[in-house]
Nucleic acid binder design. Structure first.
Lengths: 218, 218
DNA sequence: ATTACTAGTAGTCGAGTAT
DNA sequence: TATACTCGACTACTAGTAA
């Protein structure tokens, strides 16, 4: 129990994004245990690879490792699931990039199109708008991954298979749209794909590098 | 450690909002411990007043108590603080209600007005728009309370003192606005106060009971 | 299939204290 | 001041098993 509490306290102090200076007694005070326990746990957490630290006779500098961060973050996401992220609008920002054209190939598939029309209420233009997300928006993507969206089922043709896809109603430039999130990701992590009934790129004369905002409903 | 994990697992299963049926071995599977441990913890959690349950030879029905829910929720909020809720738009919905007129009295104070103008960029109409929140939006209010907003400092007159207030830029009906969150709350918990440079009530002919949406930036 | 007791072991605790 | 060791007490674990 203290192990988790200590890890959480370190996260609260910001150790997931920077090195922090914290003494074992300070930490003990925050987590309601003895200085010895805090010290012992810090040593153990280091051993387990969850934190990195430099401990000396005059204090220590602590930082969560990616593994430690991951552990706390997944706990956070569990709680997000539990307490819900309902009725929330996520605003993604990023710049327009050219897809490989593969997006259109996917979306154009009749099986996908039918489901989009049925579940989203519109027939998407057979092409995706690809956005390279800003740093801030990257977190949101990770977050939205855990939310329940509209499920689009995959299927197989003779040549290949198309995976399950999750989507969320969205709006961009006052146009109806949807965020597409494949379960099997084939994109770089900082890119999202948007579909819309209109060919938004042409309608608004968009070019690569233009800044675009997308509001996603959950 | 298991104690927290088990409590979290129960929350994940929805036990904070309804009674759930879960066997000790099921719970043990999810939290990676033995059936005996899960069983023992459930008994202990009940003893501590964190859960309520009906255990019998053919399973048990479990539900978090308000205390248990509070415990997990505060953990969640700690993590929210740590990992941030940046770049998020919160959409509040509710129905318009008449304030006591006290809102206008507050907002009208010169010391507040100056700070609003300086920190929000507009001089609010001296009156608040009060919204009785929908159930879904209630959660958001609780959530937004923990976020860093724009601080408006309190002050004292000869007669009385006005407390610190936190506010967030917002938009409602395409009008610039701000959500006002007093630290010392004097309202019922399901009500939020909005200010705006315009007298929105008149401009849009709003009456009590009308549904209003407010998008709050964080 | 459940819940949950017992017993033995492993893990965790804080006090005292060394460095 | 720090960190962190030893040690005795206590707690929590799992396996076995009863009900």
């Amino acid at each position: 129990m203290q192990k988790l509490l200590i890890l959480i306290e370190l996260a609260k102090e910001g150790a997931h994004s920077k090195s922090i200076q914290i003494s074992s007694s300070e930490l003990a005070g925050e987590t309601d245990c003895s200085q010895q326990t805090a010290s012992r746990w810090l040593a153990k957490l280091e051993e387990e690879g969850l934190i990195k630290r430099e401990a000396g006779a005059q204090g220590q500098i602590v930082e969560l490792t990616p593994e430690g961060t991951e552990m706390i973050k997944s706990l956070w996401q569990d709680l997000n699931k539990a307490f819900g992220d309902s009725s929330r609008t996520f605003k993604f920002t990023g710049e327009l990039v050219s897809g490989t054209g593969e997006g259109g190939y996917y979306i154009g598939q009749e099986e996908y199109q039918e489901q989009f029309e049925e579940k989203l209420g519109f027939k998407p233009y057979p092409g995706t708008i690809d956005l390279r997300l800003d740093r801030d928006s990257l977190r949101l993507k990770e977050r939205i991954r855990n939310l329940k969206g509209i499920e689009i089922e995959g299927f197989s043709t003779e040549e290949r298979s198309f995976g399950d896809v999750k989507c969320f109603p969205a709006e961009s430039m006052d146009e109806e749209a949807a965020l597409i999130l494949p379960y099997r990701t084939h994109h770089e992590e900082d890119i999202i794909e948007i579909i819309s009934p209109e060919k938004i790129r042409d309608k608004y004369d968009l070019e690569d590098g233009n800044r675009v905002e997308v509001e996603v409903e959950t």
